[in-house]
Design a protein around this nucleic acid. Structure first.
Length: 620
RNA sequence: GGACCCGUAGCUCAGCUAGGACAGAGCGGAGGCCUUCGGAGCCUUAGGUCGCGGGUUCGAGUCCCGCCGGGUCCGCCA
């Protein structure tokens, strides 16, 4: 039951008849007054008519009164009707309104390269992605979450090359596998880069020389830092790589063997890639994040999917010769109207999609086309959402344009890029390549430390410690709009005061514990209508609004909408909580009225928090 | 050079998609509240040319244009 919607309908019906404007138009322009004392619902008249000289009167089931106030028609709701209808139908899943026509939706998120541990950029990706999954599921959609394993690129090959120099060691017991791999990868890469730049120095011109020297010094400093973390590995790697005649050739050979599907290479690569994934899952598991499916990029190569797409593109009328290889000319074969339809800026000159390297091997974006087909077909998806950083905006547009050109306009339209802004680190860019990052695990442990100290100080319940840490981290991420660039700051996450996940959990616990002690028989007809004033009345209206807010947050894919609402709602409840007693109230009708409101608060917070992936705590 | 994202209180951010009533929170600052169902709380208070300049409109933080800052992308990398 969505009481607010019914009330808005009633209001719109009366006004539309009075001023002769379509009901739908009136309905869509109804808003909530921005300040107190103006009623519960409001219509700015100029938004629907030029005739401002009108008055509306009367009342209905929900509408108690209409009042003309400047350019507005303000409506006061009948709190008793609202109360009755909200609480006589208050179910377990109150507010989690389901869509009429559920869609099948694939959400791909996180998809970190399996060569180093997850860092705070992935943290944002994973939390946004997982929150979308939960919100859309709560809304009634069928959602399939996927992780794309980029296992066939150069980066994995570098890692495997390093491992080969170490004679394919096993991760030591007690060490997190992704972290262990990340160190080996960074060492290998840095040593390769130093070797490379040292070579370049030999034929460098005077002007380049200085720049290259300083770049090399920088790399050497990074290398020293890495060496301190494991001297034995570093020295063996350094020795092996420096002695290698042509490391580049060996790395290309690894790529070639893996892409071809050479059995021994497959075994080795998959083993270590899966170690990295194990590490990812261990980290993400702490926040309750998991995936339905892992898709390996290499599978698309081995099973012929990529080849099929390549053949299709080679048949395309948009195929052109580009710098000596083949590409799709997206710019000249996609007109303005289609660009707009595919959410591509008019002024952007879309770069051609290069189909293959001169040696015939394929490139990431083309493989991504194949992967997109797989996501649509495997799950019979209506919509595919890619949660990817904003840096990938252009490749994502190329992807949509390519799908369109290949004759799949529906796929192109239903492929959404859920973009998020960069996460930087106090002015410094993170770099997995150089082993410079704050890992997901470090963040988690740091937050856990602070939360634990706080719980001990409060003599609180340590059993749910992980759930408090989870809510602190999720809230900090999800309460900022996705497209904002953010600078990472642990202090912000460890502030557990009013604007925080733990604050919401705490508020929930208060409401829950009142209800746990209730002995009254609750009957909506046994209440005191005069109680529905002040904060209690406002709480009631917000409870009634919750289904609408939830639906908007899910439909717009804007979890921050729900977050803000839950916080304001908690503020309101806490303000009231401090002023009046519930259980100690002597008058039975007053007491029962208040208990109902607390029940509403409990339901709204419980369902709101759950759909954000935060556990409502009964004690903390 | 072109394209995209961001710019709101000392700091961190809501509000901008679909314009509407004196611009809202938290942190930090100042001052209060434990005979109280959980003080991770409550109540006061100070703090703002909504980056700047035009335009559209009865009305602009919100829409349009032009600037200025910060970031990102423009590879036969992923």
């Amino acid at each position: 039951m969505n009481v607010i919607r019914e009330a808005k309908r009633e209001m719109a019906r009366v006004i539309s008849q009075a001023i002769n404007v379509e009901e739908e138009k009136v309905f869509n322009n109804i808003e909530y007054p921005s300040k107190e004392g103006l009623g519960d619902l409001s219509l700015p008249l100029p938004s629907v008519t030029r005739n401002l000289n009108i008055d509306v009167s009367g009342r209905g089931k929900y509408v108690k009164s209409f009042r003309r106030d400047g350019i507005f028609i303000n409506v006061e709701l009948d709190e008793v009707s609202v109360f009755n209808d909200v609480f006589s139908s208050l179910s377990e899943d109150y507010g989690l309104e389901k869509v009429d026509k559920p869609k099948r939706i694939v959400v791909e998120h996180t998809s970190a390269n399996p060569i180093h541990p997850l860092h705070i950029g992935h943290l944002r990706n994973a939390i946004l992605g997982d929150t979308l999954v939960r919100l859309l599921r709560a809304r009634g959609h069928l959602v399939n979450s996927r992780f794309y394993v980029n296992d066939s690129g150069r980066q994995v090959a570098i890692l495997i090359y390093g491992l080969s120099k170490l004679n394919y060691p096993e991760p030591p017991a007690g060490v997190k596998k992704d972290e262990w791999l990340g160190l080996i990868y960074a060492m290998t890469n840095v040593i390769l880069e130093i070797r490379q730049i040292t070579q370049e120095l030999k034929n460098a011109s005077e002007s380049e020389y200085k720049e290259k020297i300083s770049k090399r010094d920088e790399l050497v400093a990074v290398a020293q830092g890495l060496r301190e973390r494991n001297e034995e590995y570093f020295d063996v790697l350094s020795d092996g790589i420096m002695k290698e005649e042509d490391p580049e050739k060996v790395i290309l050979d690894i790529i070639e063997r893996y892409e071809r599907g050479d059995e021994r290479t497959k075994q080795i690569v998959r083993k270590y890639v899966n170690y990295a994934l194990e590490g990812f899952m261990e980290s993400l598991g702490k926040l309750g994040i998991s995936f339905d499916v892992f898709d390996y990029e290499s599978d698309l190569l081995w099973n012929g999917d990529v080849r099929k797409v390549l053949e299709e593109t080679m048949d395309s009328r948009a195929r052109v010769n580009y710098k000596g290889t083949w590409a799709l000319d997206l710019e000249n074969f996609i007109d303005e109207a289609v660009k707009e339809e595919l959410r591509i800026p008019k002024g952007l000159e879309l770069p051609p999609l290069v189909l293959m390297r001169s040696d015939g091997t394929t490139l990431y974006t083309l493989r991504d086309v194949a992967y997109t087909f797989k996501k649509f077909s495997d799950f019979k998806a209506d919509v595919v959402i890619n949660v990817i950083a904003e840096q990938q905006a252009v490749p994502q547009m190329q992807l949509r344009a390519t799908l369109y050109l290949l004759g799949y306009p529906e796929h192109a339209k239903n492929l959404l890029h859920y973009s998020y802004g960069m996460v930087s680190l106090q002015g410094m860019r993170m770099s997995g390549r150089l082993g410079r990052y704050i890992s997901f695990d470090e963040v988690y442990e740091k937050v856990k430390e602070v939360v634990e100290a706080k719980v001990r100080e409060k003599k609180g319940n340590l059993e749910e410690l992980d759930e408090i840490v989870n809510s602190a981290i999720r809230y900090a991420i999800v309460s900022v709009s996705a497209n904002k660039p953010v600078t990472f700051n642990v202090n912000k996450i460890t502030n557990l005061e009013e604007n925080s996940g733990p604050y919401l959990q705490y508020t929930y616990a208060r409401a829950y514990n009142i209800l746990a002690k209730v002995t009254d028989h609750l009957d909506v007809s046994n209440i005191d209508p005069l109680e529905l004033v002040g904060e209690k009345r406002k709480i009631l209206i917000m409870i009634a609004r919750f289904p609408e807010v939830f639906a908007k947050a899910a439909d717009d894919m804007s979890p921050e909408v729900l977050t803000v609402f839950l916080r304001q709602f908690s503020d309101l409840f806490n303000a009231w909580y401090d002023k009046e007693r519930v259980l100690q109230e002597k008058d039975e009708k007053k007491r029962i009225t208040r208990i109902f409101l607390v029940k509403g608060v409990e339901a709204v917070l419980r369902n709101g928090l759950k759909s954000l992936g935060i556990k409502p705590l009964t004690k903390m």
